[in-house]
């Protein structure tokens, strides 16, 4: 069973790295990009078990370590 965790910056938190990526894309001629926000993707390999329980456990991991909830949101997907 796999858990996929996306960690993104909350709305309103400045993202200078996203801005730099946006500038680079424009420099490469990719127009029409209206905004870039960068984040993290973490994949966890989990022992098989109850998917709902696993999701709750991974959410707890996010709260304690994987995300900093002052500035970041997270989503958890479980793939069985």
């Amino acid at each position: 069973m796999k858990a996929r965790v996306h960690i993104t910056l909350k709305n309103g938190v400045l993202d200078p790295q996203g801005k730099a990526i946006h500038n680079s894309l424009e420099g490469l001629g990719f127009d029409g990009v209206e905004g870039v926000r960068q984040g993290k993707f973490i994949e966890l390999e989990l022992a098989d078990g109850d998917a709902e329980a696993a999701k709750a456990r991974v959410a707890e991991m996010c709260e304690k370590l994987l995300a900093n909830t002052v500035i970041e949101n997270y989503t958890v997907e479980i793939e069985t």
Partner: peptide
Amino acid sequence: LTECGLLPGVLMRNASL
């Protein structure tokens, strides 16, 4: 100290990168 909760807030990447 911010990550362990003794102090509030967070130190983000410098605005200049």
